[in-house]
Design a protein around this nucleic acid. Structure first.
Lengths: 359, 359
DNA sequence: CTGAAAGCGCTAACAC
DNA sequence: GTGTTAGCGCTTTCAG
């Protein structure tokens, strides 16, 4: 790799002159500047970023950690972040945690070693102590989820309200046995969503059957299908189900298709998030659409602003920004009274039983 | 930030001792090592990666450039790459080019300045001369698309065959007027896909009407809808359409839904790629499924192997790996003979005309 | 207007 | 076993 010294030697000038010429220092004469620029170009000189960093230059890379980039929800976030970074001349270091605190830690270690300018993270349920300690050394923002010990700056959605709306919608349609399938209550988001579900039921004075709440690992593509089978195989199956995560919604839609359960006549469904294609799933998925881009953009702007102010990591004012989701009513949930409660489910239960027996 | 010197001073030892202790150098006594490790931990010492780099250590970051990470197709690639990188202790720098050579150049500049270990890139149609020059300075692999001047190492899919299969499928079903909507022929992929379409038509001795080929910018969400309107508004509309990109497929599916065109009775459709939800679009989308993960994993492994061998950038043997797509037959294209040619299209044409007039 | 020198944080060669 | 020294590539005093 060509260095500034290589260029300087070739031209018979000092390295400082090369550096200054390339930095458009006004003290350099036009003629030398031109010579230097030309030589640098010809020799393929590219300033070594690491050397600048070590001298104390500001880092231009921001780290992003999400559970799973193949999840359209996080891909949308990464895309929005990427746009903001581009406009601000920043590079993005992207890591996937797979919801594993150990993997998360490895990424955070790399971030710290690289002296990134800052980070945006969707934390795992329980980041390790070292993760917490390392993150404390540079500015960062929590997105969506909120883990103890991390930054007091958090940008998320109103999870409780989102699920409350979804559940309320089913209550309004006359549903009485409404199931909830969602991510673990260990996650701040998971807990809030369960609260939303319970609040809607409580407001309608409905019985709260704990068997109707099915929780599991958020990233598991198995949670939705498994929960559905358990719910529909039960003696008193629900007439409708509320999804507590994008991933659960996705897998549930697939499974309902696979089992050929008719929606909404056999089962009412309300999703979480609104991904491409969900509008044309069956009768159209009724769901809570989330303000994903805004959340990403706001988070990024906060971080960039914070970084450019050169504030210390300690004087960060706690900040929480909560964006609301919007209920989108399509066709996957309709009047529960139009058919006897559980009319469809027993048949499905029998089908599931048969399938399991033959497997 | 704590440095090795800070730790050394606190302990009254030299920086080299600190460095060696932390690097598990066997020459260091167990007692000092323990003291150093303890102090380093307490003081929150994290080795500065930039300083190591500048001293000649191998970079541990690999750059990835894709057109658009919110496109599920590229998100899948990024996810697969991320998994391989994690297993090899590498970090990922991700950039979106938005199919803009200027943006692409900015990312490549940053990559060069950061002295990344290597790069995986889905190039734009015409990378700038500087992009070409910079990429020549470090190992990289082209994925999917193949641009002149870049690495001779390329991992892609058999685009020609994929579209040929798709078109052939429609021919076999009796379709005679088959349209093709795809990305620009400037792209290596675009050109190959057009060839596949034409080859299938030629093999069946069908007329090749140039009006049935609609091309445009690959990332434009508008290409599919616009092309569809033009095609169906024409005097002699096609009975079916082949999609030439994931993005075209996505937007086309949306638009067909919006216009309430009945598929397959009114129009046969074969997609490109197989994204979540496409199986439940209308009668199920018949499409060509692509071996995306394999492609990503193979590319990454080639690069990692190349890097770890410490080979020079010049002695790279040209390498091309082509993976085949698989036709997945679902319900979006059926026998053309079952209804009069263009029976549906005129009605749709009239609807489009009315809509345009009222707009 | 330009050069010489120092130093960022780290490691490796070279002492002892 | 441990310390001293030098130098990676760059920028920024300080000199001239």
């Amino acid at each position: 790799m060509t260095t500034a010294r290589d260029v300087a030697e070739k031209l018979g000038v000092s390295t400082s002159t090369v550096g200054r010429a390339l930095a458009d220092d006004p003290r350099i004469s036009e003629s030398t500047r031109a010579r230097v620029v030309k030589a640098a170009r010809e020799m393929g000189y590219v300033a070594n970023h690491a050397a600048r960093l070590i001298r104390g230059a500001a880092s231009d890379t921001v780290a992003v950690v999400v559970p799973d980039i193949s999840n359209g929800f996080y891909a949308t976030i990464a895309h929005a972040l990427s746009g903001v970074f581009l406009r601000h001349g920043l590079q993005m270091m992207l890591g996937e945690s797979a919801d594993d605190p150990g993997v998360e830690l490895r990424h955070v270690r790399a971030m710290a070693a690289s002296r990134v300018a800052g980070a945006l993270i969707v934390p795992t349920a329980r980041p390790t102590a070292e993760t917490v300690r390392l993150l404390a050394t540079f500015p960062h923002v929590q997105m969506l989820r909120r883990a103890a010990g991390l930054s007091e700056v958090w940008f998320g959605i109103d999870d409780e309200h989102a699920v409350q709306q979804a559940t309320q919608h089913l209550v309004d349609l006359g549903h009485r046995r409404i199931a909830f399938i969602g991510g673990s209550a260990d996650l701040s988001t998971g807990a809030a969503r369960i609260r939303g579900y319970q609040r809607a039921l409580a407001a309608a004075d409905l019985d709260q059957d704990p068997d109707l709440i099915r929780l599991g690992a958020p990233a598991s593509g198995d949670l939705g299908p498994t929960a559905l089978r358990v719910l529909l195989g039960a003696a008193d199956p629900p007439t409708s189900v509320v999804c507590g995560s994008v991933q659960v919604t996705r897998s549930l839609l697939e499974e309902i298709r696979r089992l050929a359960i008719s929606v909404p006549s056999g089962l009412g469904v309300v999703g979480f998030g609104d991904e491409p294609g969900w509008s044309w799933w069956g009768p159209g998925l009724s769901t809570v659409s989330l303000p994903t881009e805004q959340l990403a953009v706001s988070s990024a702007l906060w971080l960039i602003n914070h970084i450019s102010q050169g504030l210390s990591t300690t004087d960060v004012r706690p900040y929480s920004s909560t964006a609301a989701g919007t209920l989108v009513v399509r066709g996957s949930a309709t009047d529960a009274a139009a058919r006897p409660v559980g009319s469809m489910a027993p048949a499905v239960g029998a089908r599931i039983a048969k399938e399991s027996a033959s497997a």
